[in-house]
């Protein structure tokens, strides 16, 4: 089995993966939030008292980013199977 021995390349790919995990989660949350945000603004325009609940609903998709961020952090700092390969 061919082993990629260049630690720099491996570490770079890992960083790209970590970036994608957070970035795509962010985009997904944004797509989810656009509709909720617009609707909340619409309701708050009529009922200012709804702002608190509305903000809560709007922030729900934001939790998805936390999953993405967690995966990124694991990739960058806690997931080290390749460490064995690249150790000199």
């Amino acid at each position: 089995m061919a082993v990629v021995a260049d630690a720099g390349v491996l570490y770079g790919l890992l960083a790209v993966g970590a970036g994608l995990a957070t970035g795509l989660a962010g985009i997904g949350a944004g797509v989810g939030e656009q509709g909720i945000g617009a609707a909340v603004v619409g309701v708050v325009a009529e009922e200012p008292g709804f702002l608190g609940k509305g903000l809560f609903l709007m922030l729900l998709p934001e939790t998805l980013i936390i999953f993405g961020l967690a995966v990124s952090l694991i990739l960058m700092f806690a997931w080290t199977p390749f460490a064995a390969i690249v150790t000199p």
């Binding site: 656009q34 509709g35 909720i36 945000g37 617009a38 609707a39 909340v40 603004v41 619409g42 309701v43 325009a45 009529e46 009922e47 709804f50």
Partner: peptide
Amino acid sequence: VKYAYITGRVRA
């Protein structure tokens, strides 16, 4: 999603 604002508003 273009309807989100106006439907939210009319429901209120």
